[in-house]
Design a protein around this nucleic acid. Structure first.
Length: 342
DNA sequence: AAAGAAAGCAACCGCGTGTTA
DNA sequence: ATAACACGCGGTTGCTTTCTT
């Protein structure tokens, strides 16, 4: 099938995005939406391919991104979902509002995998490592036997073995399998002494008929807000997900909180959503991130800007904005004015 | 303090799939 | 029916930062 035409175009920039490029892309999408991604770079005045623009927007510039470290609850949920879905990162990300598939995938590969192995759990099968090793040994001896008896079918046999259906995936479709529960109980109890090892209650929640009744907040998760004194107040996640629901329809181009691309609305003057909250105010809302606080914001300082959000700090008006447009040095007035919709 | 290793993360690549002409 | 196009996904790469010795 056809490849993305932009892949063949030359003289297109690659690599890290500059603040100017970010500004152009944000400027364009906030005004017009992305429409056809392949036309975005041209319309936005960027020397990038549409694919690159899409990725940058979805993984980094979207205003509804959460960022910050993952909370224990989020990690547990990722493990739980991975046990059911495997490496279907976009589907996993769909259950974690404000998180991208890329972010989750990175977390899995860099951190969670390791943790699971340390606990003696195979991250691929979610079974105890010893069990998996035994199966591997059995499989290899079987393969050797097959090799001896039927050399002509060697490659086919191996191929079939590799394509053997994932029992966990199969399991997830019908019965929320006991291996999952076994694993989760084992792992989560390791992780959290207070974790209630009643997986069924959680998983039923995941897959009950009302699951997507509120696509922007399927779990009714609550974020914590901080008041001016840094005291936490409860605030529904919906606050961020629904923020733009109003009149002007702009497709943000992300899978967002649900699988299908969702239309998100930008509040206009007099809009009732979020009590006339402006985007900049939204961004400056001091959310607690990750483990209730920003434990270690990424220190990568792409554009050579100042570092922010040291350990234990709390998202405040400055570093929250910075975290979204990381490294963006004080944006121009024109740019800031774009962020005010009323 | 310096160097190497490990970790973290943004971005690219290639492929599969859906849509359209 | 088919080819071209566009999008989205998952795997991978490579750069930067942090940790360790």
């Amino acid at each position: 099938m056809g490849r993305h035409s932009c892949c063949y175009k030359q003289k297109l920039r690659k690599g890290l995005w500059s603040p100017e490029e970010d500004e152009k892309l944000i400027n364009h999408i906030t005004r017009y939406g992305h429409g056809c991604w392949s036309s975005v770079p041209k319309l936005a005045g960027l020397q990038r391919c549409g694919k690159s623009c899409r990725l940058r927007w979805i993984n980094y510039l979207r205003p509804d991104l959460k960022r910050g470290t993952f909370s224990q609850e989020e990690e547990n949920l990722i493990i739980e979902l991975h046990a059911q879905l495997g490496n279907r990162w976009s589907q996993i990300a769909a259950q974690l509002p404000g998180r991208t598939d890329n972010e989750i995938k990175n977390l899995w590969n860099s951190s969670i995998k390791k943790k699971l192995r340390q606990k003696g759990i195979d991250p691929n099968t979610h079974k105890p490592l010893s069990e998996v090793e035994n199966e591997d040994q059995k499989a290899s001896t079987n393969t050797k036997n097959i090799e001896k008896t039927s050399s002509s079918e060697n490659s086919n046999n191996l191929g079939l073995a590799a394509e053997k259906p994932n029992p966990i995936l199969e399991n997830s479709c019908s019965n929320f399998g006991t291996p999952n529960e076994l694993f989760l109980n084992r792992f989560l109890c390791f992780q959290q002494p207070n974790y209630a090892p009643n997986i069924n209650s959680n998983t039923n929640l995941l897959f009950n008929s009302n699951f997507n009744s509120n696509p922007t907040n399927p779990f009714g998760l609550k974020f914590q807000n901080l008041d001016a004194n840094g005291m936490s107040t409860s605030d529904e996640l919906q606050r961020s997900c629904n923020l733009f629901e109003n009149n002007n329809v702009i497709p943000w181009g992300a899978t967002d909180c649900v699988k299908t691309e969702k239309e998100v609305h930008i509040p206009t003057s007099g809009g009732e959503i979020q009590e006339d909250m402006k985007w900049t105010e939204y961004m400056q809302t001091p959310y607690l991130m990750g483990n209730s606080t920003i434990q270690s914001q990424s220190s990568q300082d792409v554009y050579g800007g100042t570092k922010f959000a040291s350990e234990g700090s709390v998202m405040n008006s400055s570093n929250w904005t910075t975290s979204i447009f990381r490294g963006l040095q004080p944006p121009s007035d024109n740019f800031l004015s774009l962020l005010h919709f009323n």
